[in-house]
């Protein structure tokens, strides 16, 4: 797909430049154009949160954002966290607490979790649950996800 609009994006620290149609969604740009298929599409209407990435420091739904809107920005996706043999602490906590089953919601949960951990006190489980309430998971019943984030809050706050 081409169409004359040049988009420049820094994704996980790497600069990309591509010509795209104005209607191309950011999530399709990441998945199809860049091959970063870790970011998933669960609804394409902004409800499930599977497509969550961090754009210029804030979590966004990449299914509700056009690639051209993100032009000049910096995107963080799940591929920018840890590696298979060297997980990032939140990924490690998800594994330790069995916070994923099918794994489809997981990249979105992780990126939302990263954003929450950077910005929110998350003093109670209620706050964690409220923070996650824009991300659907059909497998886990959320309990282990809450536990993984609780453990990460404790590690962050040093208690």
């Amino acid at each position: 797909m081409s169409g004359g609009h040049v988009v420049r994006l820094r994704v996980n620290g790497v600069d990309h430049e591509a010509e795209v149609e104005p209607r191309l969604l950011l999530v399709d740009f990441l998945r199809v154009q860049l091959g970063l298929t870790g970011t998933h599409v669960g609804c394409e209407h902004g409800v499930c949160g599977a497509c969550t990435v961090i754009l210029n420091g804030d979590s966004v739904r990449s299914c509700l954002c056009l690639a051209v809107e993100a032009d000049g920005g910096a995107v963080e996706t799940v591929e920018g966290l840890g590696r298979v043999d060297d997980l990032d602490p939140l990924q490690e906590a998800f594994r330790e607490h069995h916070a994923l089953q099918c794994g489809f919601c997981t990249p979105g949960m992780l990126m939302t979790g990263i954003d929450l951990l950077r910005k929110q006190p998350l003093a109670s489980d209620g706050e964690i649950r409220a923070g996650l309430s824009g991300n659907l998971c059909r497998c886990t019943g959320y309990q282990h996800i809450v536990r993984a984030i609780r453990a990460s809050v404790e590690a962050r706050d040093g208690d």
Binding site: G38, T39, T77, R83, L87, F94, E96, L100, G103, L110
Partner: peptide, 21 residues
């Protein structure tokens, strides 16, 4: 036992059908 499938799913390296190009 911690799950053997987790590392790939946690790092975006799972392969769902739509990921196949």
């Amino acid at each position: 036992v911690q799950r053997l499938e987790d590392p790939r799913l946690l790092t975006g390296h799972g392969t769902y059908v739509d990921d196949l190009q």
